[in-house]
Design a binder for these strands. Structure first.
Lengths: 257, 257
DNA sequence: GCAATAGTGTCTCTTAGACAATATAGA
DNA sequence: TCTATATTGTCTAAGAGACACTATTGC
């Protein structure tokens, strides 16, 4: 023990310049949906949004930034990000994923800071509760398209771009769409969510492929009530639509097969 | 300017405990191939290997570890990793990719260190030159299967596992296979490389799929000589095989289509 | 009946998957 | 000729892609 302590203190006796902090920044995405004003039932308009906060202190005082904070020695980066997420949005237990580190010298005027970037996907229904509590002037959801054009603090513009690219890729290759959907949803809702995140997405025979092709149909299963009958919803349509839920099945993708 | 400096010094006046360094560790993979001793021409035996170094100092003195080093304030993590890679292997300009950060408290007895993990893919022909120069006792390639069973320094066992999972996924979804192949190669070589990294991989009609199905044939193109004639190789076979090269085309993958 | 969404029929062309068969050339 | 790899033939079932068509139900 003494040996170890001595070694350790020997080691850190100022031979190296050390970082001035270990920040974690979080790109919090949500999909806002707005009922369209129409006499008939119709699908809502959906929009991908990102949560930004207005900085109160130097540097970049008054500018918008990604939520984040400093990690302490006694927690992992993930725990730090979870803590920040809870503070900013009041939500826990949601999809939170580390995706990159930002280490460009000079990226932070406060000193040498390597930022650890996470993205989080939050269902708007869970975000809604919290929003009323906040000072709307300091914490705000922005449409992603708009946020990308804003001048953000630090290199947060680049972080946002990277996060968006990542969730666009994952939206098509994993089942993260479920983060933006209720437990049970219709095929149209799923399609809309995918389209909202990846505007280029187009799949003419979507319903058929997802429900009846052998290689993919394992992704979803029909929702059934306690009697085992199929559950339908007519929330967005005159004709009731079948409700589905995600299974745990995740097809393996390959460019070679 | 003065204002900024004053703010900065104000900021860092010991309010937070700061990390004791910013290390980058690199998981360097290569595929070693060994000609089989057979009278007839036959495909070599291939094996995925990882480069480890034996630690000379406390902590974990004498144990094997991933190569790595401390990042300086004036470089990015990538530059740091590139520098380390050059020092350990003598190679530059190869596939180097950041994949995770390791921040478990207590992971490094020297203090609070968040390790930034990269993986690198090196063609054995480029590694061969360097190996003679090194003291074989301190830098060594291990079969990955063996390295996974060794007790490595720090949390390098976990880092190695994660890196392996990542390149297995990427082997099937991107064209990183080319990192382990010469510019021009035969279909069998490509198949072997994929199989070496992902043992479960099996594709009965591989040659046909990769060369003649519409959705995938863009990945490869036939190699041709200056006259425009097809180039063949009989290095591994009696009957000469068509040589191919990767194009820049990268199919988009989706679980929904 | 109209509007708005849900879902099916149908047709053609391509691909998957399994195996057998043929091709090539050095030893 | 034998051996080891390369490449094509063939057949069936499944899927892709396009579009027209039917279904449902509140207004």
């Amino acid at each position: 023990m003494n040996q170890e302590r001595e070694n350790a203190s020997n080691y850190s006796s100022g031979r190296y310049r050390t970082p001035d902090g270990a920040p974690a920044d979080i790109v919090i995405f949500t999909i806002a949906s707005e009922e369209r004003k129409s006499a008939k039932k119709s699908l809502p308009h959906r929009e991908l949004q990102v949560l930004l906060i207005r900085r109160k202190n130097w540097p970049f005082e008054g500018m918008w930034a990604l939520p984040g904070g400093f990690c302490s020695e006694s927690e992992t980066l993930r725990e730090c990000a979870q803590r920040e997420l809870l503070e900013e949005t009041g939500v826990e237990d949601i999809h939170l994923e580390y995706f990159n580190a930002y280490s460009e010298p000079g990226r932070d005027p406060r000193g040498w800071m390597i930022s650890h970037a996470f993205f989080a996907l939050v269902n708007e229904t869970r975000l809604a509760r919290r929003r009323a509590n906040d000072d709307a002037a300091d914490v705000k959801l922005f449409p992603v398209a708009q946020a990308l054009e804003m001048s953000l603090s630090f290199d947060h513009g680049a972080i946002l771009r990277d996060a968006l690219a990542r969730i666009q890729e994952q939206m098509l290759t994993t089942t993260i769409a479920k983060q933006f959907l209720p437990e049970e949803f219709t095929i149209s809702e799923l399609y809309q969510v995918i389209e909202t995140v990846v505007p280029e997405f187009e799949e003419k025979n979507f319903i058929r492929k997802i429900t009846s092709t052998q290689s993919r149909k394992g992704i979803l299963e029909e929702a059934r009530d306690s009697d085992g009958d199929l559950k339908l919803s007519n929330r967005y349509s005159q004709r009731a639509a079948q409700l589905y839920r995600f299974t745990n099945y995740r097809p393996k993708l390959s460019i070679y097969s």
